[in-house]
Design a binder for these strands. Sequence first.
DNA 1: CTAATTAATTAGTATCCACTAAATTGATTT
DNA 2: AAATCAATTTAGTGGATACTAATTAATTAG
Lengths: 112, 112
Amino acid sequence: MAQTPSVDTVMRTLADPTRRAVFERVFHSKEITVVDLTRGSGVTQGAISQHLKTLKQAGLVIERPEGRNVYYRAQPEGLEPLADWMDHYGVPSLPAKKRYRARIVPDFRKSR
Amino acid sequence: MAQTPSVDTVMRTLADPTRRAVFERVFHSKEITVVDLTRGSGVTQGAISQHLKTLKQAGLVIERPEGRNVYYRAQPEGLEPLADWMDHYGVPSLPAKKRYRARIVPDFRKSR
DNA sequence: CTAATTAATTAGTATCCACTAAATTGATTT
DNA sequence: AAATCAATTTAGTGGATACTAATTAATTAG
């Protein structure tokens, strides 16, 4: 990746449920191949390849070719643009979350 | 909102750059009307209205009608599903100073 | 009152993109 | 060598959706 992908790229990449599921699955496996990812995905192997390409361009996965297999790994740093965006427009980071929620609720959330 | 929107809803809502820009602008203004949002947006008033409807359904904004105006406010809690997702699949390598700042000044939005 | 303003909605269009099926490439096996 | 396997790429299609222009509704101004 020549340059850090934009929030836009990351958002749009993860917005598709199938592709997000692929990312999650790659994330949860140390390494995984396309055929393994295809199994139980509900789409064809070509589709998975396309999604992986998109994920790769977004900096969310990397590949390690070995023989005729290509092993994919998640690249969590690829989520940084999204995290930065969240920091700016969004939700405080983990430790502050509880306080934050306690402060917000009472007004227009219907209490019952 | 009957129910908390899913990650999917939030992601897809924020994936569109125009709509995300609308959200950011609403977020940074205390309250803002549709005409004000339309100004300089590059799209028509109808388009802005549509985006606001989508944002509202995603739990990201709320409206306050007053006379013939409708004032919109951001609803940062709407980002929680996204934050929760990030927590799971998230970002260990987020720059430490950013997290630090977020922790000590969680309410940096209000101080200006 | 009429005219103007604000906003939402509608219908129609164009673009985008996720997907499949098929072809292709490259690597291993027999 | 041919056959098989893993993966990518291509062309084409269908569906989703962002947008515009126009209409509608409601409120305020002159």
